[in-house]
């Protein structure tokens, strides 16, 4: 549904995006992760036909963004990271404007507007002026307008930014529902645990380059292959226990979090069992010895180096 082939964008000599290759199937929910200035918004703007790529090309729903931008706009719903609504318009008027903008037949406007308002839980705000809506409601209204023409692909740039926890949860549920409806989603976000909840694929981008991309499970498995994150908590002599751990295992990263030691090691299960045995025998009184599941945040920190452009 979305294919990017050697997609590059230069602002003068400055590369904002370099040789991005990506392939998303219909129904995929793709989480696009990267620090500020990594090239996420540039990619999304290219997909939304707001910018032209300097090199390479991208196809959305089989249409080239460079050569068939109008066809791309027909199949794509775009929600930017920052957006403004037209003050002085009612919610239904706002949606009506976009229904006309997406060339939805006039006779379908009313039913469609009711449908998307219901989906986004804004039916009660149909007659309200947009300036009277809360931030969360505005976000949902913007999403409602994105859904008006029933796009196959949704490209959402930081949809949860600036929302309170409740609004964020509501939005997440809405995106899950859209994913369940078979829409292809490309969502960029800083809030990684939320992406992991409903995305089946992720891509990590930094300094304009895609560092890792693929199904969430395979990326997690790849990241945790031959490496374990352990959380060890002892009741006594924590510093001595720390020294013992460093002596016993090959530790690549050891830190203290809430009275517990968190470490990353390549040592196998045998060595881990030996360590636990030793801690018990030496009287450190361990109360917690657990393998931590590698999450997106951890992978993100491991893959990226904090380079900003």
């Amino acid at each position: 549904m979305i294919i990017c082939q050697n997609l590059s964008k230069f602002y003068g000599d400055h590369p904002a995006l370099q040789n991005l290759n990506l392939k998303l199937e219909a129904g995929d929910a793709f989480g696009f992760i990267g620090p500020n200035g990594a090239g996420k918004t540039t990619t999304i703007r290219i997909l939304a036909t707001l910018q032209e790529p300097s090199e390479g090309d991208a196809w959305v729903g089989g249409f080239s963004v460079s050569n068939e931008p109008d066809a791309v706009r027909e199949v794509l719903g775009y929600m930017p990271d920052q957006f403004g609504l037209y003050e002085g318009m009612r919610s239904w008027e706002y949606l009506e404007f976009y229904a006309a903008a997406y060339r939805v037949p006039r006779q379908r406007w009313k039913s469609l507007i009711d449908e998307v308002l219901e989906l986004t839980d804004l039916t009660v705000k149909k007659q309200s002026f947009v300036e009277t809506l809360s931030t969360g409601m505005r976000q949902r209204l913007c999403l409602a307008k994105t859904l008006l023409h029933d796009p196959k692909v949704l490209v959402l740039d930081e949809p949860a930014s600036g929302l309170d926890p409740r609004a964020r949860i509501e939005l997440k549920l809405l995106l899950k529902e859209l994913s369940r409806m078979g829409k292809t989603l490309l969502v960029s976000s800083h809030i990684l645990p939320e992406l992991a909840d409903f995305c089946n694929k992720v891509g990590i981008i930094e300094a304009g380059r895609l560092l890792a991309s693929g199904p969430v499970n395979s990326i997690l498995a790849q990241a945790s292959r031959d490496r374990y994150r352990l959380r060890i908590r002892v009741l006594q002599r924590t510093e001595e226990a720390r020294a013992l751990i460093e002596r016993s295992l090959e530790v690549s990263d050891l830190s203290e979090e809430a009275e517990a030691l968190v470490l990353t090691t390549a040592a196998g299960l045998e060595a881990q069992a030996d360590l636990l045995d030793r801690l018990v025998r030496d009287g450190f009184r361990p109360v917690e010895f657990a393998q931590l599941k590698t999450d997106l945040e951890q992978i993100f920190l491991e893959v990226t180096q904090g380079i900003t452009q």
Binding site: R45, D70, Y78, G84, Y102
Partner: peptide, 17 residues
């Protein structure tokens, strides 16, 4: 002013020529 309040991009991403 549409550019300033970030509403132009959404219009341009629609099918309005």
């Amino acid at each position: 002013s549409e550019r300033e309040r970030h509403s132009l991009d959404m219009v341009l991403a629609s099918r309005i020529s």
